[in-house]
Design a protein around this nucleic acid. Structure first.
Lengths: 324, 324
DNA sequence: CTGTTAGCGCATTCAC
DNA sequence: GTGAATGCGCTAACAG
């Protein structure tokens, strides 16, 4: 096994008969440098011939920033939809020459500073908000963009907050449109989900013009049945659920009471939704569009350009099945 | 906003009145170097006082390896269980001072070399196998460990392969134990899942002593009903499903045929399983134990120690509900 | 023993 | 177009 020494820009320079600086200028197409096409060509050819690839570590050291975009995952269980979003985001960022990685694990485990310090990322995304200190520290360390995908309004990351509200709106609109006037909202049991649930609930309220009857629904038939009973007592005929799983719980609760006719609408369109009894009507987000937008935002920030607007037109759709 | 210059080991050295080398020796507790407690203390104090943190980039450049463990995610949809495993893995590796990150996105999008070159990881994990060339390239680049979590037997990553077989075994054992002699296997529709499905099926076969009646089951009630019909014709009374979603499809198919009494057992215990009609019996893996083991394996490899054995004893459990 | 000097690892970029 | 400095930490060789 031959000790394969790394190929460095010096090797390329030697082979092309130029200096390392020139190699750098050519390979990075540095603006404001005039390099003759002939030299340019020699360098390119030499680099290709040697199979040269710049050392990411050296580049990071020098520029103070890598080509990696770090996403801090929340500590609540991530499902298919989030997985999907991450995949699309990764693809979209790859098109821009950025490498996307996600870090799972709660902040409690480990201060987030340790994580970004280990990566020296160009940008950091997070589902939950950063503290001002954290934001400041990252900025100071050269991280170009720090975005919370969800969080207090009026901050950096309104990009994804609006869609969450829209999700709730669409649910309510669908139910109202099919003749339900008194609506319930099935709120998730897990407090960590509040960050998603609150804007969705707000969307329902906005579309409805008043507060729906909110019940917290655990993912279990018995307690869900309790909630359904209370809804019944309140005259509720249609329920917007936080997501499909909660919606399935509502369905299970209604079944426990042998109650039919309660309209239920979920969010996400997980595989189990179409297989439920009855098949679950739900709302989906166009993850691809969202991911592309997010990627564009990141790229814009990294290169100092202004961020684009999110096209909210067809972003969220209702998948109508039998449950509502 | 004061231009906060980065604090380097030179700053610490200056403040402690020693050379940078000494700082390095103290902070890394380099063996074979004897440094007086007094000096040691001064350095430590200076470092703490300054809030010094070594530059990961410089360290990576110098040592040729970062403290990051990169996990290449498969291109098939990742669900809660995988998300869970990743979280646990991250926690376990953090305890060892390693930073875990995952890269979603298919290999088709981007050659995997680009990804690890951007990270310079200490180790790379993957669900699917690496080609020999890829493995070799990573090794040559200084990646300490390259593990495929699943893949051809007899290679590096038997760690997780065994559990997959065990999953199938447990399913079959449960069904056989409850009086079912003729078993069916509900194989997933998505070809990308074969890598998980094949070992599970093999486990069922092993436990059963012969091949079960295999049917491919899409996540849709109609086609699932077809499969159920064929199982009926073959005298099958119990079905092991690839996972809970496929199991739900089988249940939906049986319902379409108004057939009751077909025993079905899934894998994963997703939230929807307990809410199904009937509640789904399923098999779960102790992700925490698995993650800890994996983390230990990684750490062992990075530091050149031998890998531990996976404790398979209570790793996989049957969650009995009404479907089987 | 203690601790230092010197130079490496690589790419980027300023000044000539 | 080039030489030399820079970013930061690690470590072999060496002096006190």
């Amino acid at each position: 096994m031959p000790e394969t020494r790394r190929i460095t820009s010096a090797d390329v320079a030697r082979r092309a008969g130029v200096s390392r600086a020139t190699v750098s200028y050519v390979l990075n197409a540095t603006p404001g440098q005039s390099i003759s096409p002939a030299t340019r060509d020699r360098v390119l050819r030499a680099a290709a011939g040697l199979g040269y690839a710049p050392s990411a570590a050296a580049r990071t050291l020098r520029t103070g920033r890598s080509d990696v975009v770090l996403c801090l995952l929340p500590d609540w269980p991530i499902g298919n939809e989030v997985g999907n979003l991450l995949g699309n985001l990764s693809t979209a960022l790859a098109r821009e020459g950025l490498t996307f990685v996600a870090h799972p694990g709660s902040r409690a485990d480990r201060p987030i500073a340790e994580i970004w310090k280990a990566i020296t990322p160009a940008a950091v995304l997070s589902f939950t908000d950063f503290s001002d200190d954290e934001t400041e520290a990252m900025r100071a360390a050269g991280v170009a963009l720090v975005v919370a995908l969800l969080g207090r309004a009026g901050r950096h990351g309104r990009e994804l907050e609006v869609p969450q509200q829209l999700v709730g709106r669409r649910q309510a609109e669908h139910l109202v449109g099919t003749g339900h006037a008194r609506l319930g909202y099935a709120y998730p049991d897990d407090p960590r989900l509040r960050i998603f649930a609150d804007p969705r609930l707000a969307g329902v309220r906005a579309a409805l013009g008043r507060q729906p009857v909110v019940e917290t629904v655990p993912l279990d038939a018995e307690p869900a049945a309790e909630a359904v009973r209370r809804w019944q007592a309140a005259g509720v005929t249609g329920v917007c659920a936080y997501n499909d799983e909660v919606a399935l719980a509502v369905l299970a609760g209604a079944r426990t009471l042998s109650l039919t006719g309660l309209a239920v609408i979920g969010v996400d369109d997980i595989p189990a939704a179409r297989l439920a009894v009855p098949p679950l009507t739900t709302v989906t987000t166009d993850q691809r569009t969202l991911a592309t937008h997010l990627a564009t935002t990141v790229v814009a920030a990294v290169s100092g350009r202004p961020a684009p607007m999110l096209p909210t037109a067809d972003l969220i759709r209702v998948v109508t099945r039998e449950s509502a």
